[in-house]
Amino acid sequence: QQVILKVHHFLPSTSSAQLKLIQPWCDKVAKESGDRLKCQIYPAMQLGGTPAQLFEQARDGVADIVWTVPTYAAGRFTKSEVFELPWMAATAKSGSQALWTYVDRHAADEFKGVKRIFMHVHDGALFHFSGKQPKTLEDLKGLKVRAATRANSRMLAALGAAPVQMPLPAVPESLSKGVVDGATVPWEGTPSIKLAEIAKYHLDVPAGAPRISNTIFLFGMNQAKYDSLPADLKRVIDANSGLAASAWAGETGFDAVVETYKKAAKDAGGVFYNLPEAEYQRWVKATDSVDDDWVKDASAKGADGKKLLAEARSLVQQYAK
């Protein structure tokens, strides 16, 4: 008896999310179940709805499995959103493991109805500018910069830039037409939009420091679908879930590709600049209000925001070792 898993996500079938995470995971469970678990992948929202509705679709059983950015549904995953605050993780592997453990301990209620298979962050955003090369907080003032998430948007505002929220595919055209001066995008996202050809100036944190911002991702399954599986198939899913799977997603999906994409940017004539330590500390200081805003949001939902933030940071530290 073969079980078909409808996997729904919002990127094209050629995206690295599908090629490096979703498809390999599907192949692995197919192999380990003797082809009794079979994925049918529906990319680019083919099954209807918007990316923000993907989590709800997994909860409702419209799709069996989704890969999504839960925080697209703003205000719903406040506790998990802590990993989208500035200066959290230096690598995707450490951030993904910390995210998994943190959600397991403190935010599992936000994902009720969905079995979390793995969760991950990306390799951390950095700035890419086309015409200007800002190096200090003062240079950044008034520049229009693309923001990826709500927390990212707040952070850019705190740094004095003018955040413009737009989806990733809109970035190249907006950059080349001067709608924005720069964009925050992780290395992993640069090849799909040929960003290195348009934006030559890459501004990053000091080597090894926590990156400017991040986004959380969920690969999760409809709980009822999981519960309906026979015990041996459940074991196959379980064996490919959890902390180890999250570490794998962060590492193979993101950390492993950074050097290649960096080199491609260098070959395209890219100019790299890492903030000196002193300037970096000024940027960190400038964004304190973003942390405070999140603590307020979390406390409004009845959580101890201060404690959760400290816990998230210490988990990242712990897995970074």
């Binding site: 099954l47 209807g48 709805g49 918007t50 509705q53 709800e56 679709q57 409702d60 059983g61 419209v62």
Partner: peptide
Amino acid sequence: TVGWLNLLKSLPYA
């Protein structure tokens, strides 16, 4: 029909 009815929750607004 459950999946279909749930899909309709998101379709019109999307």
